[in-house]
Design a protein around this nucleic acid. Structure first.
Lengths: 143, 143
DNA sequence: TTATTAAATAGGAATTATTCTTATTTGTCA
DNA sequence: TGACAAATAAGAATAATTCCTATTTAATAA
C-alpha cells in the first residue's frame, strides 16, 4: 500500500469532496474511469482495474461506478442497462424516462426536430435517428 | 385457425406491405404491440401473446419484434438493451451511437442546450437530465 | 391443388449483464 | 486505539438476450 499512500492525490481529493470513503479499490477505479474517454462498460473498467488489483470483484466495480455517478463524478448513459423497449408510435416524438419507476412518457418538440445536425456528422456518418431523451422523476415518483 | 383466417385484416396487410411472411405468431404479436402505448418490453408482449397462443416462445417474440423494427413497424428505444456505459466527461455534451459497432461519439450542441423544455414538464416532473441521442452508422461502419 | 424450399418457430441451453447474500475486512471518527 | 458502519470478495441468483437444433409452416411454382 505504500504506492497507494503516496500517489492518487487527485483521486483522493475527489472522493473526499464527494464524501465517499477512501478505499484502494475506489482510488484505482476512479483513476481508470478518468482514463477512459470511450464510455467504458463495467467490464472494461473491471479488466483494467484487475491489472493493478487482481482480486477486485465485478460487484465492487459495479457498485463503485454507480456510486460515482450518484456522487456526480461521472454519468451513466440514460436507459442503457435496462431491458429493451419497443415503441409502436410512428409519429416523431421523444421520451422522458423516470429514473425511479422506469415509466416512459412521450412528448413532441418541434423546435428540436428542426435543429440542424452539428457539422461533424455531415461527412462519413449516416444519422438514422435523432431524439431527445429527458430523465428524472415523474409526478408519481416525485413524492 | 378459423378465427385467424377471418380476422387480422389490418395486421395482415401491414406485414404484407413490409414483405414479412404472415404467420399466426406475427399477427398476434403485431396486434399486441399496437395495443401497448406504454413502450412494452419483450417480456410484456410475451405475456400478452401467451394468452392467445400459450406455446409461443420468448425467442419468437424477440426475433419478431426486432424484425418489426427493422421493417419500420415500430422502433426500439436507442441504446436500451445494451450494457450500461459510464461517462467521465463532465461538460455538457451529447452522444451519437453507432448501430453497428456500438461506438459512442460525443458532440456538443448549444442550440439544443438552450431550448426550453415542453411545458408538460413544468409541473410535477423533475427533469434531471436532458440530452440528444443520435444513432446510425459511424464512418468506419459506413462501408 | 400439391410439392418444394427457405424461412419461422419451439424449446431449451448458453451467454451476458446485473443484483443479491453472507462472511470478512477496512475506513472513519470519537 | 476501539467501535461501528460501510465496503468488499466470492459466488449464487436473476434477468435479458442470443444461440442451437429439430420441426413446422408459408410462399410459390408447376
Amino acid at each position: 500500500m505504500q504506492l497507494i499512500e503516496r500517489a492518487f492525490h487527485h483521486e483522493r481529493e475527489q472522493l473526499r469532496q464527494c464524501g465517499l470513503k477512501i478505499t484502494t479499490q475506489r482510488l484505482i477505479i476512479l483513476k481508470e474511469l478518468m482514463n477512459h474517454a470511450d464510455h467504458p462498460t463495467v467490464h472494461m473498467i473491471h479488466e483494467a482495474v484487475k491489472k493493478e488489483l487482481p482480486a477486485v470483484s465485478v460487484d465492487t466495480v459495479y457498485r463503485t461506478l454507480l456510486s460515482f455517478s450518484e456522487a456526480g463524478l461521472c454519468t451513466v448513459l440514460d436507459g442503457m442497462g435496462e431491458a429493451r423497449r419497443f415503441d409502436p408510435k410512428r409519429t416523431v416524438h421523444h421520451h422522458f424516462i423516470c429514473n425511479n419507476c422506469g415509466k416512459i412518457v412521450d412528448f413532441a418538440c418541434t423546435e428540436f426536430d428542426n435543429l440542424q445536425l452539428p457539422s461533424v456528422f455531415k461527412k462519413g456518418f449516416t444519422v438514422e435517428n435523432k431524439s431527445v431523451r429527458l430523465s428524472g422523476l415523474c409526478p408519481d415518483c416525485n413524492k
